[in-house]
């Protein structure tokens, strides 16, 4: 068995505000294998985003064990994390290509090579020909594609996505799900995908981690045995329904 890329054991996180303590995560335990796309699903305020920030190295944790990287896949938290948020957060005053290049600039990577890579990534996310446009000239879905290219430009090993399609309309969202799967296959990245869309979590993930609210406790962690490439038609299959039902039940919505 290969070594996991992300290894979490009994992770606890407490926020302190003055004298008050707020337990954000009580006990998160799961592994992510290299190249996996793991969906983290749970209700709003269940600590999903906190967990992502711990993985990004932005927050520490108060208990348990967090290990990222393995002997085969060394991990440098400053260079090996790409982030995509719910809002595209492109810089309004930069053209799309220059937006994609932002992480490369901050890391001080050689710019000629980065530019070439950025162009390739824009092609990968379907934005060829939009390099010189400004963000406002693109639709919400296209802006989010650019944000995905930005998250990949420094060739990180781990991509963290925090409800990246949550603000898109339902149809665009379905389309972006298919696109993401294609991008994931072609780039071979390990992806942790946070969502509160249950069907989205099942559709994308090789594995789904279910978190329950206040404080986040891991309720379940199971593999999605559905072949890739996944098709929208799979959503009508019985097995897909079984998975979504299982999650609904865990979240007490049945």
């Amino acid at each position: 068995m290969t070594e996991p890329f992300i290894h979490l054991r009994n992770v606890r996180k407490v926020y302190r505000k003055g004298h008050e303590e707020f337990l954000a995560i009580s006990d998160a335990t799961f592994d992510v294998m290299p190249g996996e796309l793991v969906s983290l699903v749970g209700p709003s305020g269940c600590g999903k985003s906190t967990l992502l920030k711990i993985l990004a190295g932005l927050h520490g944790h108060d208990g348990g064990e967090v290990r990222i990287g393995s002997s085969a896949h060394a991990f440098d938290p400053s260079r090996d994390v790409g982030m995509v948020f719910q809002a595209p957060l492109l810089l309004k005053w930069r053209r799309i290509l220059d937006n994609v290049l932002l992480p490369a600039e901050i890391l001080g990577l050689p710019m000629a090579a980065a530019r070439e890579r950025a162009n390739g990534l824009l092609a990968l996310v379907g934005l060829s020909g939009f390099e010189d446009k400004y963000p406002y000239e693109l639709s919400g879905g296209m802006q989010q594609r650019a944000a995905i290219a930005r998250a990949l430009v420094h060739d990180p090993k781990l991509v963290l996505m925090d409800e990246p399609f949550g603000a898109l309309d339902a149809l665009t969202r379905e389309k972006m799900n298919l696109e993401l799967l294609r991008i994931w296959k072609e780039s071979g990245k390990t992806i942790v995908f946070v969502t509160h869309g249950i069907s989205e979590a099942v559709f994308l993930g090789t594995r789904v981690v279910v978190l329950t609210a206040g404080p986040a406790r891991m309720a379940d962690n199971f593999e999605i045995v559905l072949p890739y490439p996944r098709t929208l038609e799979m959503k009508t299959q019985e097995r897909f329904g079984d998975y979504t039902r299982r999650i609904y039940k865990l979240l007490g919505m049945e």
């Binding site: 400053s78 994390v81 948020f85 957060l89 810089l91 600039e105 420094h154």
Partner: peptide, 29 residues
Amino acid sequence: IEPELLDLVRGLRGSRWQLFTKIQLPGAL
């Protein structure tokens, strides 16, 4: 400045000067 944009720069261990010249100042114009 959007907190997530700040996270993005911090995640990449960007300097305060980079944050200022690349995001804050053009954003403040």
